[in-house]
Amino acid sequence: MKNTVNTILLPVAYFVAGMSILLFGWTIVSAVTHNEVPSPSDTWIVFKEVFQSPFKNDADTKGIGTKLLSSLGRVGIGFTIGSLIAIPLGLLLGSSKIMMNIFNPVIQILRPVSPLAWFPLGLAIFKDSPQASIFMIIICCLWPTLINTSFGVASIPQDHKNVGKAFGFSTFKYITKIMLPYSLPHIFTGLKLSIGIAWMVIVAGEMLSGGSGLGNFVWEEGFNGGSIAKILVAIVIIGIVGLILDKIFTALQKKVSFAA
């Protein structure tokens, strides 16, 4: 009985409390700005409207679901390519001090650069704005995975390395049986941070690139279309999808973790 309270009812209660505070704050802001920022209930009406035909995909009107999927698609491509670069590079940097010393300054300089700064560069390279936003995601996805992977590999305990040496593990066996299993939780921490960044960056990218996607929805239909409520709807959707992505990667991370 007590267990059910602790594991189910309490978290639900906390969630409800948190959401109530959010909605309350939102209502106050709405009242203070004289409904310049629409209230939660007004937004809810628009929300239902937007979701009337979410997967509409005509030449000139696209549903919110279609836009969401196209954003997710770009994030998926950019994140995958970014990870495919970051993980092997991270393994290399983590296992070689020399490589780490060479690449570390490069990473430190490039990492803090705003995602938006990469966009025009991508546009110049690809001459295509959707591709430029994917390019932007690739670049921004690199760093957390790269840094966490290399940190994971660099922190393999001497004990585990000694096991590999004492029992004559080949390089392949060392990588597959010691290096990867040990660093996998770290790699997934990096991936989780990367997917979060990718999801944040895509909205900005699509605002710049136009065309389809959630960022475009915020800019074109929300701001230019004069509907602040639509912007709020988009924010809610972006937030929820971001939360789901985070939960998925947290679950994956738990799955690859081991008891020491």
Binding site: D159, N162, V163, A166, G168, I178, P181
Partner: peptide
């Protein structure tokens, strides 16, 4: 360390 000398580590060192 090398496999010509089998080691039982003090802290077991299992993976």
């Amino acid at each position: 360390p090398g496999p010509d000398r089998g080691i039982v580590f003090q802290n077991y060192s299992l993976l």
